[in-house]
Design a protein around this nucleic acid. Structure first.
Lengths: 156, 156
DNA sequence: GCGGAATGAATGCAAACGCATGGAATGTGG
DNA sequence: CCACATTCCATGCGTTTGCATTCATTCCGC
C-alpha cells in the first residue's frame, strides 16, 4: 500500500462519515421542522436566541455570533434587525471598537428562548434520545465536539 | 431517582449530543463554503446532483428526492426546474403514477457531479479526515447512520 | 363504478437570502 | 504622523425560499 493509497482510504472514510453526519442532520431537522412550535419563531431565529443565551449575560459581537450561525453576514445582520424590531434582542454600538455592534437578549427574548427551548428539548429527546442509548449519545457528542473544535485549528 | 428524573437526564444527554452534532455540521459547512468550488454550482444544487447519482441509473421521484434534501417541496421543484434549464437533469412525467415527476441526471449532469464530487472529497478529507482518526470516523459514521435510520421508525 | 378524500407537483406572491459594495473605524508600515 | 490596507457592519439588488393555494391524478368507502 502506497502513501497515496493510505490518503485515499482516509478520504473515503472521512467522506462516508461526513455524508452520514450530514444526512442524519437533514433527517432530524426535517422531523423537527414538522413541530408546530416554529409557528412563533423560525428555527434559524431560535438558533440566534439560543446562541445568545449560551453566551451568558455578556453581549455578543455580530461577527462572533455569525461564526455559530449558518448564514451570511448580511443575512444575519438583517435577521438581528428584525429580531430587534420584535423586541427580542437589543443592538448597540460596541464601546471598545466602534465599528462593531454588540447584540444581547432582552428579558423578553430570554423568556421566549427558554419557553421554546423547553419544548424543543422534549422534541429532541423524542427523536434523538430514543434513537441511541446513553453511551452512544455521549460518544456522538464527544466526536462531534472534537470535529467542531478541530475546524478552528486547521489552516485554510 | 424517580422516573421523571431519568427521562430528564435522557433529554439532557440527547440535547447535548444534538447540539454538538448541529454545531459541528455548521462549523464544517462554513469551512466548505469557503471553497472556490461552489462558484459553478451551489452546495444545495450539488446535493441534488449527488443524491440523484447515489440512486444509480434509476430516476427518482420528486417527493423521494425531497426526503433527502433540506428544502421545501416548492423550492425543490423550482431548483430542479433550474437544473433542467441548465441541462444537468431531465424531468419527465412518471409512467406508473401520472401525478408524479421522475428526475434523472443527464450525462452532463453526472459528469459535473463527478468532477465536483472528486474535488469536494479532497476538501472533506482535509477538514474532516484530519480531525478524527479512522476508528473515530467509523464510529461517527455508524452512530449517525443509526440516528438517521431511526427517524423513519419513530412515529409522529 | 362513483364521488369525495388524499396525494404529487406546480405556481403566485411576499419574505428572506447571498453577493457585491459602501461607509466608518481601526490597524500598520514607512 | 500619514497614507493605505483591513475589519466591521449596513444596504442595494437580483435570486431563491417558504407558505398558501391550485390543478391533476390516484386512492378508497360505499
Amino acid at each position: 500500500m502506497t502513501t497515496t493509497d493510505v490518503r485515499r482510504s482516509d478520504m473515503r472514510l472521512a467522506s462516508e462519515a461526513w455524508e452520514s453526519l450530514f444526512r442524519a442532520q437533514v433527517a432530524v431537522m426535517r422531523r423537527f421542522s414538522r413541530d408546530a412550535l416554529w409557528a412563533q419563531l423560525s428555527m434559524r431565529e431560535y438558533d440566534v436566541l439560543f446562541t445568545l443565551s449560551r453566551c451568558g449575560p455578556r453581549p455578543m459581537r455580530l461577527n462572533e455570533l455569525n461564526e455559530h450561525i449558518l448564514l451570511s453576514q448580511p443575512s444575519l445582520s438583517r435577521m438581528v434587525e428584525r429580531l430587534e424590531a420584535t423586541g427580542l434582542v437589543r443592538r448597540e454600538p460596541s464601546a471598545d471598537d466602534r465599528r462593531g455592534t454588540v447584540i444581547s437578549l432582552t428579558p423578553e427574548g430570554a423568556e421566549v428562548q427558554r419557553r421554546i427551548g423547553r419544548q424543543h428539548v422534549r422534541t429532541i429527546g423524542r427523536y434523538v434520545g430514543t434513537a441511541l442509548d446513553d453511551d452512544e449519545l455521549r460518544t456522538l457528542g464527544r466526536l462531534c465536539d472534537k470535529l467542531r473544535h478541530a475546524q478552528q485549528d486547521i489552516p485554510d
